[in-house]
Design a binder for these strands. Structure first.
Lengths: 215, 215
DNA sequence: GCCACTACAAACCGGTCGGTATGTATGGTG
DNA sequence: CACCATACATACCGACCGGTTTGTAGTGGC
């Protein structure tokens, strides 16, 4: 019943799966999860529905795998890649990260926004599985910032009267909000300005004794 | 061909239109614009497709009208209602607004997030008409904050080395990011914490000469 | 070199979507 | 009171959606 006339390439299941994940990422990044069409994803990946449903149970499973295997890694690499191995004090390191992100903005980042936050805003009220995974990544991110701040508190480079966890959560929220507003305004300068404001804000987290040499 | 058996109530075109706008607002707030079903909106409004397409050209027109006539007003009322008539200095007024919002959080606000930002994140890359309207509202909001800060700069209650417009844009972005992250975390305390952090941040915008009496 | 199983390809399906065609009840106007 | 534009209600449509079924080509193990 299936004519089977078309190309049949050499088999490469892992590569096929990754092509699907990447195509799903790109389609979903632009259209959102619900509005992303499987046919569009398949066309972009260059495979057929048979391949998709061989590798994934349904559209939701594709979305979950895409989150776990594409989005989370990308985000954590972008925003806390240099956080662990940096030898500077945590605030300087964070400022460096923010300013590096501001410099390296791609047009896609401004136009489409943060893939994690996009999914969060779309899916959180609709699907607990999505919300749980997304929130887990936000939590990892926040925890990493918080631990960096705590290290700074331990060695005296960060004010000790702060709740590191709450400051970290604020930073993540401000980053995502800045990306989102810049996307709505289609303005890379707006995003750069907000990231710079965050870097300046970080300066206010240094102990008073350290303020002198910086002003 | 149309049996016309059902109830036909008294005519009230304005009320019907408003019922449609309100139903659209609620469905879209939860599901997003693209995923919001016209049938669900009609069921919620208690009218039929004939009524909808009598009042609006298509789904997009309904969305645009809903933005202009429901969302924008709601947002500006929430976030800059008391900004004009307050007699306190602008920073204190803004702190009051943030803390009042933190106290008056409804479960719906935390679960569903900001309707304007939801639409912004979903529709900005897909539809210039949506993006333009949404961005206009963000702009009005930012401008109102900026003008309040400028008034403070004029009367000496706000530092003059700040770019009021950029600070205002940062505030709006941080607010939206905070709402978005709290929605993902399903956490009203997180939103309250972030709004409080913003209020504290505002304190740092006072001139140095005014710092003494506050610390 | 055959075989069993994996990794797909292609056709197909019911359901839902936004949108339209058509008809009619309502209520102001002459 | 006749008329007619307005304000709907209902039935219907093609397109597309996610998902399933069916068939088969590639491929490692023996």
């Amino acid at each position: 019943m299936a004519p089977q006339v078309a190309r049949r390439r050499t088999r490469a299941p892992d590569a096929t799966r990754e092509r699907l994940l990447r195509a799903a990422f790109e389609e979903i990044h632009r259209h959102g999860f619900q509005a992303a069409s499987l046919d569009a994803i398949l066309a972009r990946a260059g495979v057929t529905k048979g391949a998709l449903y061989h590798h994934f149970a349904d559209k939701a499973a594709l979305g979950h795998a895409m989150l776990d295997e594409v989005v989370t890694g990308l985000l954590l690499q972008r925003w806390l890649g240099r956080l662990q191995q940096s030898e500077a004090d945590p605030l300087t390191t964070l400022q460096g990260i923010f300013r590096e992100r501001a410099e390296r903005l791609t047009p896609q980042e401004v136009e489409l926004g943060c893939p994690l936050n996009n999914l969060a805003q779309e899916m959180s009220p609709l699907d607990e599985q999505f919300r749980g995974r997304i929130n887990g990544t936000f939590d990892t991110w926040t925890e990493a910032f918080a631990r960096a701040l705590e290290r700074g508190q331990a060695n005296g480079s960060v004010r000790r009267d702060l709740d590191a966890r709450r400051v970290a959560a604020f930073l993540v929220a401000a980053i995502e909000g800045s990306i989102g507003l810049a996307k709505s305004a289609k303005s890379a300068p707006m995003l750069r300005s907000n990231l710079e404001m965050l870097a300046v804000f970080l300066e206010s987290l240094r102990p008073a004794s350290a303020m002198g040499k910086l002003q």
